[in-house]
């Protein structure tokens, strides 16, 4: 449009009209602005953090006190084996909420507003994923706090333990893209959740989370060995409680990057198409 339209102060006001100043890193800024939105929503409705805080605590209680004695002879030894793995499981479960709330947003029309703005199509999705990293942090903090109270101790050093947490968060943010894709494709938030759990159960329980791999039947061992979640759990264990790290950290990182590279563009693509 070539004509500049004159406006009165009620609509014009402070900032100059016309083209906005050309500013760099637009995608990053837009994504961060939208991430802040997700964060505000989380803070405003803390009750939606119940699942990411109480559920892992409940798992720990059930597994350690109900099964721990039978599985490993001592509850404290089992806690040491289990807790880093539960940490991985709980952030993966926490990741479902991103797909769920994204689906709700798309249905409610909040995203139509974003789609009518001159921003990258990927910005709202990246923003959601970034904003929900806070949920992972809360989940891990609560779990470690609870673990500490019932006798879990970090066997390495704070730096390695921190590395474990960061690795787990990075992996979970990769997994989040799978649920973002679900959230963009599916019609109902409930369907997103249901399908997500179908994916999550084999991924999280089909690991060495609860028992060592060599106690499993052969076909299950085969699955556990190719399941990337096993690597992440092993890496978290090694970094938090000691023991050989091996190639688990590298494998975890590679898997994370691989999942993002595949699922993030897919999610953006389907989001772009969604009516």
């Amino acid at each position: 449009m070539t004509t500049t339209i004159e406006r009165n102060p009620a609509v014009t006001g402070t900032a100059p009209s016309g083209q906005p100043p050309a500013r760099t890193f637009r995608l990053a800024r837009h994504s961060l602005a939208l991430a802040r939105r997700s964060l505000i929503k989380t803070i405003r409705t803390p009750e939606q953090l119940l699942d990411v805080t109480l559920q892992p605590v409940m798992f720990v209680v059930i597994f350690v006190y109900l099964l721990g004695g039978a599985i490993s002879g001592s509850q404290s030894a089992y806690l040491k084996f289990l807790l880093p793995a539960i940490m991985v499981q709980s952030v993966m479960f926490a990741a479902v909420a991103t797909g769920f709330s994204l689906n709700t947003d798309v249905k409610k029309g909040v995203f139509d507003r974003f789609r009518s703005l001159p921003i990258a199509r990927s910005a709202p999705l990246i923003g959601s994923v970034l904003g929900d990293l806070a949920r992972f942090v809360v989940s891990i903090a609560v779990l470690l706090g609870f673990g500490y109270a019932i006798g879990f101790r970090i066997g390495t050093n704070p730096l390695e333990a921190l590395a474990a947490c960061l690795l787990v968060i990075f992996f979970a943010s990769a997994i989040t893209w799978i649920f973002v894709l679900f959230g963009v494709i599916m019609r109902e938030p409930g369907a997103v959740q249901g399908t997500a759990f179908l994916v999550l159960f084999p991924l999280t329980f089909g690991t060495n989370m609860m028992v060592p791999t060599d106690t499993l039947p052969g076909w299950l061992q085969a699955w556990v060995k190719i399941n990337p979640v096993s690597d992440v759990m092993d890496a978290a264990r090694a970094l938090m409680t000691g023991g050989p790290v091996g190639d688990t950290v590298v494998k975890s990182l590679l898997w994370s990057v691989g999942i993002i590279v595949v699922f993030a563009p897919l999610a953006v693509r389907f989001y772009r198409r969604r009516v």
């Binding site: 906005p20 100043p21 500013r23 637009r26 800024r29 837009h30 602005a33 939208l34 802040r36 939105r37 505000i40 929503k41 405003r44 409705t45 409610k108 029309g109 909040v110 139509d112 507003r113 974003f114 009518s116 703005l117 001159p118 921003i119 910005a123």
Partner: peptide, 21 residues
């Protein structure tokens, strides 16, 4: 094309302003 119910009036409008650079 609605606003975000969990955000305040100000937060909604500031967000859009930021998305408009």
């Amino acid at each position: 094309a609605s606003v975000d119910e969990d955000l305040t009036g100000t937060q909604n409008l500031v967000l859009i302003g930021e998305l408009l650079d």
